[in-house]
C-alpha cells in the first residue's frame, strides 16, 4: 500500500502575508493520492484549492507541513530543485492553455524537453509521439493561433505528457471551452488515466467536470470539508 502512494500531504499549511495581515489559505490539509488515481479538487473561489494545486505542482512551498512526492520530501526543496521536479514529475494543463504564441504545436510540446538533458532529435520524436497520443497527428507544424480551442488544449496535454510525468495537474481544463469540446478533453483525461494509468488531479469548481474523476475532494476555507466517491 505504501508503495502505491504517489502524493502524501501531511498537515500542509500556507500563510500569505498581505501588507500587515496574514491570510491562512490552507489550515492543515492531510491527504494521500495513490498512483493511477484520478481525483478532483473542488471548492468555491477563495477556498484554497488553487493554493493546494500550486503546492502539489511544486510551484509554491507550504509554510508548514510535509509534502512527499514519490517517496521524496519536496517541501524543503529550493527553487532550482522544485524546477527540476516540475520538469520531470509534473505536467500542467491550464484553463487558458498557456501555449507560446506564434509557435508550432511541436515546439510547444517540446518545451519541457528543452530544460532537460534530452537531445534535439529524441525530443522531436518524443513530442511527435505525445501529439499523436492526443490525436493531433498531422497538426505538428500548425502555429498556436491556427488551432482551435480544443486543439490548443490537446497541445497543452501533449506538452504535459511529453516527459512521462508522475502526475498531471489540470486547472479548470475545460473552463475556456464549449461543452462538447470540454467533454472531448475530459475523455482524453479519463482515457489516459484508464489505459495508461497516469495519475490525474483536476482542479475545478464545475461538478460536471468533477464527475469524470474517481473521487472529489471538497475544500472550504483552507480545510478538506468532505471527500465524495464518484463510483467510477
Amino acid at each position: 500500500m505504501q508503495n502505491n502512494v504517489l502524493i502524501e500531504l501531511n498537515d500542509i499549511k500556507k500563510i500569505y502575508t498581505v501588507g500587515e495581515s496574514e491570510v491562512h489559505a490552507l489550515k492543515g490539509v492531510s491527504y494521500s493520492i495513490r498512483k493511477g488515481d484520478m481525483v478532483a479538487i473542488m471548492g468555491p473561489s477563495g477556498s484554497g484549492k488553487s493554493t493546494m494545486m500550486n503546492i502539489i505542482g511544486c510551484l509554491d512551498k507550504p509554510t508548514a507541513g510535509r509534502y512527499i512526492l514519490e517517496g521524496t520530501e519536496v517541501s524543503t526543496f529550493d527553487k532550482n530543485q522544485l524546477a527540476r521536479i516540475r520538469n520531470k514529475q509534473i505536467g500542467f494543463v491550464f484553463q487558458t492553455f498557456n501555449l507560446l504564441a506564434r509557435t508550432s504545436a511541436l515546439e510547444n510540446t517540446e518545451l519541457p524537453l528543452l530544460y532537460s538533458d534530452v537531445n534535439a532529435k529524441t525530443a522531436k520524436e518524443m513530442a511527435m509521439k505525445s501529439l499523436e497520443s492526443v490525436g493531433l497527428k498531422g497538426r505538428e507544424t500548425h502555429k498556436t493561433n491556427q488551432l482551435s480551442g480544443g486543439e490548443r488544449q490537446r497541445v497543452a496535454i501533449a506538452r504535459a505528457l511529453v516527459n512521462s510525468p508522475a502526475v498531471i495537474l489540470a486547472d479548470e481544463p475545460t473552463g475556456n471551452l464549449d461543452t462538447k469540446t470540454g467533454d472531448e478533453i475530459m475523455k482524453i483525461f479519463t482515457q489516459l488515466n484508464e489505459s495508461e494509468g497516469i495519475t490525474i488531479i483536476l482542479v475545478t469548481h464545475d461538478p460536471e467536470v468533477a464527475e469524470f474523476a474517481r473521487r472529489s475532494i471538497h475544500i472550504r476555507d483552507g480545510l478538506i470539508e468532505r471527500i465524495e466517491e464518484n463510483g467510477r
Partner: peptide
C-alpha cells in the same frame, strides 16, 4: 511575463 511563467512551469530554472 506569461511566457516566462510557462517556461518556469515546465521546469525552466532561474538560470535558464
Amino acid at each position: 511575463i506569461r511566457e516566462i511563467g510557462i517556461r518556469m512551469s515546465v521546469g525552466a530554472k532561474e538560470r535558464d
